[in-house]
């Protein structure tokens, strides 16, 4: 329906366009600043070689692997825990405990990541040092559980939210047949709510990839490729934070924009995936 546009509509439109342009501007900035490297070397070179600035090598392969490993490992730890916790909140716990747990999970989302890592630095790192018996105690294995704790509330809230959306009539039907809570969960709620579960996992993975402070403060930041999980490693985000201190014109500095670009594209793909999964699933129903 075409209607004459009013002046106020233009104001609101301008605000939306500005916000949209800012999103594009972030991408453009990253692209422009990483162009020198993208033109010089092959992109594959950059992605697959290692980091040795003194030899003129600015590959970010170790960081990429560290980021992916960290994110996957924390997801592997966090997913079952979050799912279990959301079972407790949605079906198993009595009302009062349920409210307490939900409030706690909400509170967890408000805890600054820098505080998590600060506490873990003085609690978990010495512990890991003792267990591993070598090194500083900072490693992928140290950072992953803390990262898991960070992404757990995101996932739990998403899971609980999608369980809540299961129509009451469906769960009542199970109750009427004499089913217990866990049967309700297994045979009615999970089959109905799994799109929400997938979306929650995708979001959690995104958060784990994007977090800076935990990997920066706990994973050790070693630039060399790691062979085992008990070794120190540097994630893409930590790499950006650390190289920043260097000279603005150096190749090292430019290389962090490639990292940024990579993370941006990763996010965009993730969001597209989320969008598509939501669309497909809602279309199917």
């Amino acid at each position: 329906m075409d209607r004459p546009h009013s002046f106020t509509e233009y104001i609101f439109l301008t605000a939306a366009v500005c916000s949209g342009l800012l999103t594009a501007a972030v991408f453009l900035f990253l692209l422009i600043f990483s162009l020198p490297l993208l033109q010089n070397g092959e992109l594959t070179d950059l992605l697959l070689s290692s980091w040795a600035p003194d030899k003129g090598m600015y590959g970010i392969y170790p960081m990429l692997m560290a980021s992916l490993t960290l994110a996957c490992l924390s997801l592997v730890i966090s997913f079952p825990l979050s799912l279990g916790c959301s079972f407790v909140i949605s079906a198993l716990a009595p009302a009062r405990l349920r409210r307490f747990l939900l409030s706690m999970v909400r509170l967890m989302t408000g805890i600054p990541t820098v505080v998590y890592s600060f506490a873990a630095l003085f609690l978990l790192v010495p512990f890991m040092r003792n267990i591993l018996g070598h090194g500083s105690g900072m490693s992928i294995l140290t950072a992953a559980p803390v990262l898991a704790l960070l992404i757990a509330p995101t996932m739990i809230i998403f899971f609980v939210g999608s369980f809540e959306k299961v129509p009451l009539s469906a769960t009542l039907a199970v109750d009427a047949l004499g089913g217990n809570p866990i049967q309700k969960l297994l045979y009615v709620m999970i089959p109905q709510a799994w799109p929400g579960i997938i979306n929650g996992v995708l979001l959690g993975f995104g958060r784990a990839m994007g977090d800076t402070m935990i990997s920066l403060m706990l994973a050790g930041n070693s630039v060399s490729a790691f062979n085992s999980l008990s070794q120190s490693a540097r994630s893409l985000t930590a790499h950006i934070a650390l190289v920043m201190a260097f000279d603005f014109d150096s190749m090292e500095f430019k290389s962090i924009f490639v990292c940024g670009l990579l993370l941006y594209i990763f996010t965009a793909i993730l969001m597209l995936l989320l969008r598509m999964s939501t669309l497909c699933l809602s279309g199917k129903r």
Partner: peptide, 22 residues
């Protein structure tokens, strides 16, 4: 627009900082 804003919402904060730096 909603896709754009979703992407912006998902962009890691260090990238936003990097954009500010650039």
């Amino acid at each position: 627009f909603s896709l754009l804003f979703d992407i912006l919402a998902g962009v890691p904060s260090i990238i936003v900082g990097l954009a500010g730096l650039s």
